[in-house]
Amino acid sequence: MSVSKIRSGVSCNLDNQLLQATLPLFASEKVEAIEWSFDTLYKVREIPDWFVELLRAFSQEGRLIGHGVYFSLFSGKWTTEQQRWLDHLRKVSANFKFDHITEHFGFMTGEDFHKGAPISVPYTSETLAIGIDRLQRIQEACSCPVGLENLAFSYSLDEVQRHGEFLERLIEPVNGFIILDLHNLYCQLQNFSLDFETLIRAYPLDRVREIHISGGSWESSGIRPERTIRRDTHDDAVPEAVFDLLRKTLPLCKNLKFVILEQLGIALHTMESQRQFQMDFERMQSIIHTFNSRNQSISVTDFLPKESISLNEPVPESAKLYEQQVELSSILEHSADYNEALRSLHRSSLAHSSWEIEKWSPYMLETALRIAQKWKQGW
């Protein structure tokens, strides 16, 4: 147990526009931590020396955290790409000291390792066992605290209400933590007409070590055009409502250590959008500094495993789950519209199964189609 102040940080990747937007914040010494998606450099042939030096500078101060994108935690099949991802994490962790490593909840819909987007899986003992095994492998590779991020997307209200509890059961064996993404939470509050006080209590708040804030977008439903869906697209300014959620959530998370502002570089191509990003950061930091000044000592648990982890051999897999994931991915990526996807799902092996497709919200199935088709060619 140690005592710390909450640190304000930014997502920091090898992206010109994101770095251009962040540079004035670095120069004014405002950035207190950076979060690097260490598995997104697969297309880059050479990492500039200055980027390595930037990572090292934050790493040496215990202010570098890693956020994976592509691991596909719940894939029913254990793949050579996942083993390569772990080998890569092990190498990178030997070169940089990460304060913690995180990944996304869900499985990737893409046809290969670097395509698709994470979407949810049934909350069963089988998926729980696979998720726990994969988290143990990540922890063994990086030798630092490991956490998972709550998903923005859910198929049904029942799934939204059970997400926090399932996350807690997943991370418990590695004594892990969660990233509470407040824009993801905002999406669920809006898309399922929930109130903050009820939903926030469904999460293990003493397990929150990191918070994300970001912007997103509204999308009209094709099923009923007057109905809008909130999407976690990371391509706009942080909404006022998310700053409000941050103010409300800070006092509830006694082990919080980092708050990170996320935005995609593709949305930072104008001076105006870059200035808005800087103002969002300054506003986020102001909220955190105010909270820090009123709360002198924040206890921080280490979130390291309480006992040494022995990895499962053979690696737990589920051929049936994998087949269902491939089938679902194909339906989502290739259906022309919601009605075609619905017909295909009811003819598929997911019908009358633990996926409970019969309970899926029509708007969320439509959203799943849009997410899968947006990212099927990769990021």
Binding site: Q20, F26, V31, P48, E53, A57, E61, R63
Partner: peptide, 18 residues
Amino acid sequence: MKLSSSLLQAITLGVSVA
């Protein structure tokens, strides 16, 4: 966090020349 002026210069140059 304070970064060295040489690192800030290197990032600025690196980003500006893409």
